[in-house]
Design a protein around this nucleic acid. Structure first.
Lengths: 245, 245
DNA sequence: CGTCTGGTTGATACGACTCAAATTTGGTGG
DNA sequence: CCACCAAATTTGAGTCGTATCAACCAGACG
């Protein structure tokens, strides 16, 4: 288990080597899911906490008439389902976008680690709160931005999140979402996503092919999307905290 | 301070009389805000945790071009800003819809109560998780439902939330949102909200006038809105837990 | 009374959807 | 390495839901 995975948790609090080792010790059991399969399904009583190790996943909600939304994405370093301690049944599904490797944590063991290591509990709480902030921004994105800016905004968010876990390479990163996925995440039609994407490309804001995203001028895309990185709470506050007290 | 306010927290865990007394003891300082004024503003470093005692509030996010979204509503019994322990600056504003009375809790004192009373910490965590689930459903609502169902869905949600804190009277409740508020919350135009509201009325699904909502046939509205109460996690799990151990 | 806020109406325009088909890409097995 | 198939992307034409702009109306309030 690569400790690099816990980088995301350290934005808020630096974890000590022991904290990370304790987490790693209970994250040994992994599971691999094929692309497009469910990790957890709506209605299930959840049994494990998952940590994404490799690949992308999405949280989806479905309407009785078949309409589906993707309401969150998970990239490496993201925990899903920290809420299982409390919620009785899943109100959404989590499915793999790509082939997905996750660590499967036993709730009891995680609880044990948290009770002994206040930094870990803080880090996980921070993780959840940022998740909630992202969700609010998505609501805002769907409610307030037209298609062009809305898609641009999603690109910026995902790019910055990938960058925060060192998964970008200069101005590019993996980007496994299909146009159909983008449609479900933005509340648009696949056809309209396609056309909007073409304008974004024509305007030189993004390149997207073969599951690879290139953003030649990030600042320009940020401006277009009216993106305010506030909500990602990426500032390295953790840097100020000593990990060894 | 009326203990009834903590009813919302008890959906998940029954709180003992002492738990509630401890909360009430630190919730003595109240603050009153005029309608349409900010309780907390975007960018602020938050200083208190707030509990809504009377009135409605909303969480809003604004775009540089002036477009605004309401991304959450708070009704009596709701805590706002439990995240202040972690987040450095507010990524949204909280403003009063009606004249608003809140309890202003000192973060330190709340922390103190939580550390001594595991049930309280559980209840607050549950509260946050439900808030996150509601946020996801809003994202879904904006992304997947057309105007008519979308507004219907919001009515059902707010009605059920009001009912869960005993603020409904049979098939009706206070409903202080203007059509302009509804527009900002649903990502629609005030004009379109007006017209959609007229259809909902014409179809006998809701009555709404003078800040009062009547839902003559809740089940029918639920069906129209494709509302699944799952995500509110209202089932009285707390009923199973003994408050005195 | 006038003023203000919130609600309503009408006419028109446009962004996004629908349906249907063609094309390209990527993966698989022969 | 090519042939094939399925998945993903692209294109076109026509429609519809929602936005826009501009009045107008009703009640609340000082």
């Amino acid at each position: 288990m690569e400790l690099a995975l816990f980088k995301r948790l350290e934005v808020f609090t630096r974890l000590s080597a022991e904290d990370k080792a304790a987490l790693a010790a209970i994250a040994t059991k992994t599971r691999v899911i094929a692309a497009r399969r469910d990790l957890v399904s709506e209605g299930d009583k959840p049994t494990h906490v998952h940590l994404v190790i490799r690949g992308w996943a999405a949280r989806s909600k479905m309407l009785p008439d078949g309409r589906r939304s993707l309401v969150s994405f998970f990239i490496p370093g993201d925990f899903c389902d920290l809420n299982i301690y409390i919620l009785r049944a899943m109100d959404h599904s989590i499915s793999a976008i790509t082939p997905l490797k996750v660590a499967q944590l036993e709730p009891d063991q995680l609880l044990e680690v948290m009770s002994k290591r206040p930094r870990v509990i803080q880090a996980l709480l921070w993780h959840e709160l940022v998740g909630a902030a992202v969700q609010r921004e998505w609501t805002h994105n769907l409610g307030a931005r037209p298609a062009y800016e809305r898609i641009a905004h999603l690109f910026v968010e995902l790019f910055l999140r990938m960058r925060s876990v060192d998964l970008t390479y200069g101005d590019s990163c993996d980007f496994p979402l299909t146009q159909y996925d983008l449609a479900e995440a933005t509340g648009l039609t696949p056809v309209h996503v396609n056309r909007t994407l073409q304008s974004l490309r024509a305007d030189g804001l993004v390149e997207l092919e073969r599951r690879r995203l290139v953003i030649p001028d990030l600042q320009r895309l940020i401006d277009v999307a009216m993106f305010n990185a506030n909500y990602l709470h990426l500032e390295q506050e953790g840097a100020h905290l000593d990990a060894n007290d």
